[in-house]
Structures are given as C-alpha cells and as structure tokens.
Design a protein around this nucleic acid. Structure first.
Length: 581
RNA sequence: GCUCCUGUAGUUCAAUGGAUAGAACAUUGGUCUCCGGAACCGAAGAUCUGGGUUCGACUCCCAGCGGGAGCGCCA
C-alpha cells in the first residue's frame, strides 16, 4: 500500500472513486470527508446527504451503495449511520503501519514537503525606528515568524523581510528636536532608543503648541528627503541604534530576517510609481493629491487610496506599492504575505486592487497577495495599547519578566541546578509561554493584555507541551533504548489510551493542512495541545516500562512518535523544547 | 452616515454547514508505595435576541441589541 501522509485526503480519494462506480452518482458528488467523532469512527463522509437531497434519492440507500462499491480492506471497517453518514473505523493495524511509515524526524519532515514549492515573501514585525517595541508589536513578529517556519518546512522558498517604518514624518519632528536640544547621538546612555522616543514625544508636544516649530520640523523632513548630508547621517544613526535595540528582542525571540529593507529603501522608487500609475490612468488628481479610486467597489469608489499627498510627499501607500513591485521584480515573489494589525485591512485591500490593475496592464502575473491580519491588543480601558497615551508595556520588559517567572519555577523544581542551566531553561520556558499565549488564540480576535495570561505556566500553555516532551526524553534516558530500534515493533495498539494516542498522532497532517490553508497558527496549537493531553492521559494510565517486551516496545514507539510531532509542531510555532525541565 | 470585525460556562478561549458544543483558569471531589504532580481522573456550568435558508445552523442570510475598528493627506 502506498503511504498517504494525509489520511483525510486518502479516504476522500477512496470515497470519490467508490462514488464513480455507483450509477446514480455523477461527477458533481463531493465526499465531504471529515474527521469523525471518536464515537462513530475515525473519518466520515457526509456527501451522500446533500447529494441525495439534490437528486431525489434516498440518502441512506445512496450511502450504502457507495459503501458497497468502496475498495474493501481488512484495515478498516465501513458503516452507515444516522441519515447517511459513511463512517470509517480504522483498525489498530492500520495505525501501526501508518506510524511505521511516518518514520523518524527527517522522514516526517520529508512528508511535509509541498508538491509545488513557491517563492514566498513574508512581511512581518515592521516596527518604527526611533521607537521601542511594545507589546503591540508582539503579534506580527510571532505570528509572522511562525508562518515563515511553517512554509519553509513545506519546502517553500521563504524570504523574511522586516519592513521597518524608517521613513515617516516622525523624523521631521525628531530631527528638529535633536538639533534644538543640541543632542549627540553618541551619548544617549544605556537605552538610546528610549531616549529618542521620549525626545520625539516632547518634540511632538512642541509642534502642537507652536506653529513655527511645526514649520521647522517640516523643513527638517524636506531636507532629509532631499538628501541633506547632515540629516541623512543623523537618520542613519537613529536607524542603526533602533535596529540594535530591535535585534535584542529578536534574539530573545529567536527571530531572524533575511532583509530589513524598510520604507527608506524605496524612497527613490516612489517617483516611478507616480508616473506609471498616471501613465495607465489608474490614479487621478483630486484635491491636490494623487489618489486611486475603484469605481467597481462599493466603498473604494468614493474612499480614496492616497498615493501622493497634496504637499507632494509620499506616504505608506506609495512605499507599499513600490515595495510590492520590487518584490515581484527583484525577488520574483509568487506569494506575498503581510502580517499586520486588522485596522489596516482597507489599506491592503486598496493596495491589492491597485496592484492587480497595474500588473494587468503590464501583463505581469500578480503574486498571490495575503493580508494576514490580527486583532488589537487592548489596554485595560478596552482601547488599543498605544505609545502616545498611557504607558504601554515594553516588549522587552514582558520578555524579561517571562524569563524571570520561569526561572523561579525552574529553581524551585531543581534547587541544585547550575545558574547557567537555570537561565537556559528559563529562557526557553518563559519565551515559549509568551509565544504560545499569543499564537494559541485565533489571530483575528482582539484581546486585553494581561501579564497573567501572557505568563501562565499551567494548563493550555507552552510549558505543558514542553513538559510532555521532557517526560518522553526522561523516559528514554531511563529505559536506555534507542528510538530507532522500535520501528519494527509488531504489536498493535490495544488499550483504549494506546489507540487514542495513535489516532491523534495520525491527525497531525490535517492540522498542518488547516493551519496552512488559513494561515492561522492557533489551529496547530489546538492540535498540539490535544495531542499532549492524549499523551499525558496515556502516560498516566499505562506503564511504559512493562515486563512484557512487546508491550513496552509498542508504548515506547508511541512515545517516540509523540515526541517527534510535538517537537516538530512546537518548532513550527517557534517554541523550543527541553530534555529536562 | 457608510463599511468591516466581534458576541459561546463565572472568566479566557475552541468547534472546514454534520451526530450528545470541546478545553483552560476559577469552584469542587478524588489520584498521592506514581516511568517527572508544570500531571492524571471526576462533578457542576454556555451558543446575545427575533426571524429565515437547510435533511441538519455556534457556523450561512435578514433585522435588532451590545462591544470594537476603519472611512483624504499617520503607519
């Protein structure tokens, strides 16, 4: 039998083929294969119901005739239930074979490879320079990193681009404040970016109060954009300082980028955007600005996409257009994924519509464009956490606190452990907890920031999953057997918990499929948590170190497979694991 | 005003239109001579309201009500 990594697809194919052998069924039949509730089996085809209804057939009879035409196998049982569900119940031998075919970690990774790899650009994190990262930045960074890992593991050529906000109007104010206060960027103390952020805030207050200050700030911005040497070198230094600060966060989070081009990288390309869109008459002048309307759209017919401000300056619509063109032209991107706040949905919808028109005129194939948006992190007042109002939690502070709390826990459990090792474990556990807290809920939902939520170490958390992994490592240390010697185990899952665990492991490809399709890491989290729960239950119920060698081998085998899936799954989430906790 | 997102146990979250809506935290009862208790087993507890589509609706449509967001020179 050929190995099918994704069992849902396998049974879907089987039912499809069976349906072709039934006279009353044509090619419009959809199996509607689903995971089944344990009570009914392992997979179920629901397609007979709607098809029978639509074609005036008896659903139960139709289901039975499809089942009758299904290739028989002694590895599963097929049955009809209720009004016409076709249920597949797999036998323990099936699961054993499947797990054997799954192989080791390398084999498992090979099964994940996509049929047709693509060049994918992932645009995530994107903090503004001269500002610190606060908790509001965590989602893009963590979700983006996870998706990058997910796609890279499937063999796609992933380009990670940190699209920094390094060319905004904030520099006018900042440069003005720097000059006015005669500040040296080489002497900003321990936290240079915190200093700059503060300086910006003060400058912002100033320009609000005094119109002449605003004029001067604008002048600085114009000078910068016109290539004034002094301003350019100040700007560059600010950018370098900011990147250094960001990198501290990225290092702690285990995030790395291939590029950090940022908006400034495209500053010489905006002119080209104006002229090309004008040439194709995609944009028009309106109230002194250059804008794009989309008459076919109910809102964007009236709501403009401003690509050049009335003062002649570019904005983020301009740079995003230039960026997209660059990614297509220079990187040959086939898919571009933007991971940003949901409040920018209109912007991206307009951006995508505009680019599609542009590329269509040029007969250039437009990359698949995905806006992976997420909900806002709210403060206790139910309003978005923002830099200017109140004091939002700095991202670095959150991460440090997470590691501290984990450290206390590690020390409590291992009083004799060396400091260095305590630190290492605390980092993996604490950072893992923070990441998991964010990844494990549907990204489209808002949530109120809470220390306790981000730092929880019990229940549905990363440490729970890491703990399961650590226990498996511990077990193998104790037994002293090699995982690779277990593949030939001949006994099949017998007990209830053995069977349930084997079954759950076999659903891993489905979780990956779902996560990839929706670009929602929380589906994977849900699966991994269920797997870990199934494992814990199994582990509690069944003695692995059993006198009976066949039983022991089987149980060790199941542990080994569980470990692979948990480690691989957590790796996709960007969460590390430990051999001991 | 227009548009979008959202409403599930006390709380925080799950549930590609499928069968008896799952978890975690909190509450509560047990496991405690156990391969790691960061654990396991049990109890109690929920789909905002009203219509509609469907063999079947937390899910899709319409109308309310509640929460949030976007809507011309911020990103």
């Amino acid at each position: 039998m050929e190995f099918y990594f994704n069992l849902l697809q396998y049974f879907k194919k089987i039912v499809s083929e069976a349906s072709e052998r039934v006279e009353t069924v044509d090619e419009s039949f959809e199996p509607q294969m689903r995971m089944a509730d344990e009570r009914f089996g392992d997979f179920q085809a629901n397609g007979a119901l709607p098809y029978a209804k639509k074609n005036g057939l008896n659903p139960r009879e139709l289901a039975e005739s499809i089942a009758a035409k299904t290739t028989s196998s002694d590895l599963w049982e097929i049955s009809i239930a209720g009004p016409g569900f076709i249920n597949f119940k797999l036998k323990p031998e099936f699961f054993l074979t499947w797990l054997q075919e799954l192989g080791d970690m390398e084999d498992t990774k090979r099964h994940l490879l996509a049929d047709s790899p693509r060049r994918v650009v992932l645009d995530y994190s994107g903090p503004n320079t001269a500002k610190q990262m606060h908790v509001g930045h965590i989602r893009s960074t963590i979700i983006g990193e996870s998706l990058a890992r997910l796609l890279a593991l499937q063999g796609h050529a992933v380009i990670r681009d940190n699209h920094l906000g390094d060319w905004g109007t904030q520099f006018g104010i900042l440069l003005y404040a720097i000059k006015r206060c005669d500040i040296s960027l080489d002497k900003l103390g321990e936290e240079p970016v915190a200093f700059l952020e503060d300086l910006y805030r003060k400058g912002n207050d100033l320009v609000k109060k005094f119109p002449e200050a605003l004029d001067k700030a604008r002048l600085e911005l114009v000078k910068l954009q016109n290539g004034d040497q002094e301003n350019l070198s100040l700007w560059q230094k600010i950018r370098d300082l900011s990147l250094e600060t960001f990198n501290q966060v990225y290092e702690l989070l285990g995030v790395r980028f291939d590029y950090a081009h940022g908006e400034s990288f495209y500053r010489d390309q905006v002119q080209g955007v104006y002229s090309v869109l004008q040439k194709y008459e995609i944009c028009t002048e309106d109230q002194g600005a250059l804008v794009v309307f989309h008459p076919e759209h109910k809102r964007f017919a009236k709501q403009p996409f401003i690509i050049r401000k009335s003062d002649g300056a570019s904005n983020y619509a301009t740079t995003d257009l230039a960026t997209l063109a660059f990614r297509k032209k220079e990187w040959d991107a086939e898919h571009i994924i933007y991971v940003t706040d949901g409040r920018q949905r209109d912007h991206f919808e307009q951006l995508f519509m505009t680019v599609k028109k542009w590329f269509q005129v040029e007969r250039v194939e437009c990359p698949t464009l995905s806006h992976v948006w997420f909900g806002t992190i709210l403060g206790e007042d139910n309003k978005a956490i923002k830099t200017r109002e109140g004091q939002p939690v700095k991202l670095m502070d959150l991460l440090v606190e997470a590691v501290e709390r984990a450290k206390a826990m590690v020390q409590e459990k291992n009083p004799e452990l060396q400091e260095e090792e305590v630190e290492r474990r605390a980092k993996i556990i604490g950072i893992g907890a923070v990441k998991y807290a964010d990844l494990s809920q549907d990204r489209t939902l808002d949530y109120v920031f809470s220390w306790d939520k981000m730092l929880a170490l019990q229940g549905n958390t990363a440490p729970y999953l890491q703990y399961a992994v650590a226990r498996i490592h511990s077990l193998f240390r104790k037994v002293g057997k090699e995982r690779s010697n277990l593949a030939s185990t001949s006994s099949t899952p017998q007990s209830d918990s053995e069977k349930k665990l084997a079954r759950k492991i076999s659903f891993f490809p489905l979780a990956i499929e779902q996560t990839t399709k929706e670009l929602k890491p929380h589906s994977l989290c849900v699966y991994l948590y269920e797997l870990a729960t199934e494992f814990s239950s199994f582990y509690n119920q069944e003695k692995v170190m059993n006198e009976d060698q066949d039983t022991q081998n089987l149980r060790l085998f199941l542990c080994a497979k569980t470990q692979i899936i948990l480690e691989l799954g957590l790796d996709i989430l960007g969460i590390e694991t430990l051999e001991e906790m």
